[in-house]
Design a protein around this nucleic acid. Structure first.
Lengths: 224, 224
DNA sequence: TCATGAAGCGGAACCTATTCCGTTTTCGTG
DNA sequence: CACGAAAACGGAATAGGTTCCGCTTCATGA
């Protein structure tokens, strides 16, 4: 199954690249051939089952069976169920990270810090909303899971940096607070309420990010 | 065990009152005597074990055994493990709720909305930090658990109301965002970092709450 | 007081994530 | 190519939360 691309489900993200990052064992260099093969089979199987049955109703047993490996292999390649989700999210997150680090403004360098932050928030909300189930799995598998993902460290650093440039007080804590407000749990909750959609959330949260970024010593820039 | 007070552990909160609220069955009126008795035994046992072994290492089996009841009884009286935590937290939360609804300013009525909000944040941070383990259990038992507790609805309404009075945009979403930033997970994470204590968190978060409360159309009040 | 239906009880059974460990596969070396 | 150590495998076993259901206890009212 899956050779080097082919037609894929809506969740698909193309052929499995060498990969690195969270919830995975050693560096790509010293991986045994069978391990690499199995890793791909597992990700394919998980993607397929998650898309078909919904993340929550897919058991690790089922993933193992679909992939044709033992459960032990799942846990060797990925730390736990959350690790599976993190690996599946990895691709999209990296695309976004690239845009945010070196793409065009306002997301990328060149715009005012507060505007870059707002652009980050808008993009991040979209990312989370689009992959909500996987994000939820990756963030709520265990208390504090959110903070342990490699991607999170990057979001956090980026926000902290922009808040710092904008002159906001307590940039570290505010970065954390902002990301907490954008957790899968929070966004999922908002989306579950009637009359609430991604656009409204995005608009409110970008506004909030501007409030967070404002240095209280500076008179707020006129806006109405 | 426990008759009508007596000497208790640090976690203790006095004799078990009639009680109502989240994770509990019917209204107090129509409860059978044995159910009421068992409810008390279970709360006592849980309190004792949680204090002794740490919330996470106490199993439902163990609570049942310590209380001298079957596990089924645990689940009849409380929805799940989180329900147990919610019930144990109930007392303190109600005290705080009372102060916030009708106590002296700035927490209670009488102060400016933004100041009341800051006071709320300060008190809430203390509440969470003080009972961190229980709060974590109650909030992270399942995704979205946070939003389902009765107490949460009240915090949320209060914050929304104050933000509204202060003229902040999107008061509902901002109230949620603020509470997300004060989740057990977030505060626990902050406290786990070196050189970070409740005072610093409180100061940063009250500041953040003031930023959230400020109406962007109004020039920010001078501050330094 | 006794009968009776409802409320509550207990704990075995179930479902899953996760761990453990004996067996198998790789792959660098002689 | 043959060996041996290291890496990876597989799946049975473990552990803990939650559900189920037949049995017991309560409380009502005749």
């Amino acid at each position: 199954m899956r050779e080097v691309s082919g037609t894929d489900s809506a969740l698909s993200i193309g052929s499995r690249a060498p990969a690195r990052g969270q919830g995975e064992a050693r560096a790509a260099g010293s991986r045994r051939a069978d391990a690499v093969r199995n890793r791909g089979k597992v990700l394919d199987a998980a993607e397929r089952l998650f898309a078909r049955d919904g993340v929550e109703r897919v058991t690790m047993q089922a993933v193992a069976k679909e992939a044709g490996v033992g459960v032990g292999t799942l846990y060797r390649g990925f730390t736990d169920k959350a690790g599976l989700a993190i690996a599946l999210l990895d691709e999209r997150e990296r695309q976004f990270q690239e845009l945010m680090l070196s793409g065009p403004p306002p997301l990328g360098p060149g715009a005012e810090p507060a505007e870059r932050l707002a652009a980050f928030v808008a993009g991040y909300v979209g990312l989370v909303a689009e992959q909500l189930e996987l994000v939820l799995l990756s963030q709520t598998a265990s208390p504090g899971a959110r903070f342990r993902s490699g991607a999170h460290a990057l979001w956090r650093t980026h926000c902290r940096h922009l808040l710092d440039l904008a002159g906001a007080p307590d940039p570290e804590l505010r970065a954390d607070a902002l990301l907490a407000a954008l957790s899968g749990e929070m966004i999922g909750h908002w989306l579950s309420e009637p009359d609430r959609d991604v656009a409204e959330i995005t608009s409110a949260m970008t506004g909030l990010s501007r409030s967070l970024a404002s240095d209280p010593a500076t008179p707020s820039p006129g806006q109405g």
